[in-house]
Design a protein around this nucleic acid. Structure first.
Length: 578
DNA sequence: TTAGGGTTAG
């Protein structure tokens, strides 16, 4: 059907009525609104599309949003830049980053807002940077060229590590950066002016998004550099930007800086408080969590929300303050704060009880919950069963978990560890066999360490690092020395069914041991070593790191998927429960 | 006339 004919048809049969579409959307009648869109056909305008798409974004209505997008294409409607940006957000919300990227690629003109939407999507997706993250961040560096070159060069060194250099988009962004920027101040200034004329300078939102990406990588030096640039720009104190600085410093392991920013803020939102509380929580500083929460209540300017309570409860749990945490939960449940406890809050309570060794109570608590327990909740209880050797409940919970998420290798390992601790070797073997049968795939472990502004990444049994020989020799040396001091490899941490000698080899190949060994080699004696891991640290590596800190007199700061482990003189801030 | 992007938690 020709467009002209279609236009006539839509005009003759139903008069366009964008008000109708608006009211349908505000009544939440998305289906009817889509019918209205079809009826309006070629008469659809920005306003109608925008209303519809917004509704789809809010509801994460993937199919419906797709139909809106398809309608634009079919009717040859050319969306203006801000509508395309909304499409990017829509696809990102539905976790369709490829579609979002395609929208961005096809935009005739992009500006800082469209780039920022994409940057934040990639950094939200997880801590794993990929070719698109780098390309987007690099382009943003070019946009803010006053700090772009130094930062860009460092990001380049990250890219080399991840072998994305040859990716066409990344490569061209890099070339672009090197071609456009140098140490040539005048040229840089000229470009800066040019980009400003094009509206491509970064603003506080872009900085906030870039900082989020860097906090995921725990790239402290890079983050500090962005902060320095923000300071040089003499921007007014934007709460959002300061919040992301608090978060960046805490995720990079530097809570003192987070607190300094927090204290200097002329105004704080609930997010500022939450970011600070989450920071203390992840660092296992329960007392500070309680102090800051008290301060928040005393100041009485900002009302705690459900995230605040999540941070406080998990802070008490991570900081070993079980009773205090339970008090807060009951305070919450009594409705004093006007916040209804949600599933996640119940999860914290299971954690708190489990940590305190009150496994039966935790089990009863789950049974009485008004929510269907999730894998995370059972998983937390199973962990408690392992630590406190409660085979009876652990067995029940373990089988429950294997039903809910049979693909998760961690569950099989914990269950088999639990059987092993009770000497039930036949059951250990059965669980292992079951695991092999279900073809469980485990996310590969990866650890990294930042030295002189370069990230050194290690994969389990990695052979790719230029100093690999030195590193594996150091790991072996460490294992010999630590054994003299009582280190006993925890063979239960090994997933494969191989002989004991092999198991020990597998353990010594864990990525965090290599990163730690590399840190010992590459930094001066007595310096703290800072390691970041993508998964939760295993029991064996935790023991290993504790002994290293004791024997070598090194402070070890290890950020895993869940929290920080500050290990000093053989003791860890997590109290061996994580 | 404008309309789009952002910060904590999961």
């Amino acid at each position: 059907m020709s467009n002209q004919f279609a236009r006539q048809l839509s005009l003759t049969s139903f008069p366009p009525n964008s008000q109708n579409l608006n009211s349908l959307c505000s009544n939440g009648e998305l289906r009817e609104a889509l019918v209205e869109m079809a009826v309006q056909g070629l008469e659809m305008k920005f306003e109608g599309y925008y209303t519809l798409l917004n509704e789809c974004v809010n509801r994460r209505a993937f199919r419906e949003g797709q139909r809106v997008h398809a309608h634009m294409t079919k009717t040859c409607y050319l969306p203006p830049m801000h509508l395309r940006t909304r499409l990017i957000v829509f696809y990102n919300n539905c976790e369709c980053l490829n579609d979002a990227q395609r929208v961005l690629d096809e935009m005739p003109v992009r500006n800082v807002v469209s780039w920022t939407a994409m940057i934040s999507a990639y950094s939200k997706r997880g801590t794993e940077p990929n070719e698109f993250t780098f390309a987007t961040v690099l382009t943003s560096c070019n946009g803010a060229c006053a700090w772009g070159f130094d930062l860009g060069r460092q990001i380049h060194s990250l890219i080399i590590k991840t072998k994305f250099e040859s990716h066409i988009f990344v490569g061209s962004s890099l070339l672009d950066m090197y071609a456009k920027l140098l140490g040539l101040d005048e040229e840089a200034l000229e470009l800066f002016r040019l980009l400003q004329r094009e509206g491509m300078t970064s603003n506080y939102v872009t900085y906030a998004s870039v900082l989020t990406a860097l906090s995921g990588l725990a790239a402290l030096d890079l983050g500090r550099q962005v902060h320095n640039h923000v300071l040089r720009c003499e921007l007014p104190p934007y709460v959002v930007l300061q919040n992301s600085l608090i978060d960046m410093y805490s995720k990079c392991g530097n809570l003192t800086y987070s607190r300094r920013i927090f204290d200097s803020m002329p105004e704080r939102t609930v997010i500022s408080w939450n970011a600070m509380l989450v920071g203390y929580s992840k660092h296992g500083m329960g007392k500070e969590v309680v102090k800051v929460f008290k301060l928040m209540k005393e100041e009485n300017k900002v009302r705690p929300d459900s995230v605040t309570f999540l941070a406080v409860l998990s802070g008490c749990s991570h900081g070993g303050m079980e009773d205090r945490g339970l008090e807060y939960f009951y305070e919450m449940a009594e409705g004093e704060n006007g916040i209804e406890p949600e599933l996640e809050h119940y999860g914290c309570v299971v954690d708190l009880l489990g940590r305190a060794g009150r496994v039966e109570e935790a089990f009863e608590f789950i049974k009485k919950m008004r929510f269907e327990p999730t894998a995370a909740i059972w998983g937390s209880l199973l962990g408690a069963c392992r630590v406190h050797s409660n085979v009876e409940i652990g067995e029940f919970v373990g089988f429950r978990l294997l039903q809910i998420e049979p693909e998760n290798a961690g569950n099989y390992v914990i269950l088999s560890n639990l059987y092993a601790s009770a000497g039930r070797w036949e059951d250990v073997r059965n669980v292992r066999e079951l695991m092999v049968e279900k073809a469980v795939i485990k996310e590969p472990g990866r650890s990294w360490i930042e030295l002189d502004q370069i990230l050194h990444t290690f994969h389990a049994s990695d052979r790719s690092h230029p100093r690999r020989e030195e590193v594996s020799a150091k790991v072996k040396e460490l294992s010999v020395k630590l054994k003299e001091a009582g280190y006993l490899p925890d063979l239960g941490c090994v997933l494969y069914d191989v002989d004991e000698e092999q198991k020990e080899k597998v353990l010594l190949g864990h990525s965090e041991k290599m990163a730690l060994a590399f840190g010992l080699i590459a930094t001066p004696e007595g310096m703290p070593v800072r390691v970041i891991k993508n998964l939760r640290i295993c029991v064996d590596c935790h023991n290993f790191a504790k002994l290293v800190s004791k024997i070598y007199g090194r402070e070890v700061s290890l950020r895993d998927k869940n929290r920080f482990h500050h290990i000093v003189g053989g003791t860890c801030s997590c109290g061996d429960y994580w």
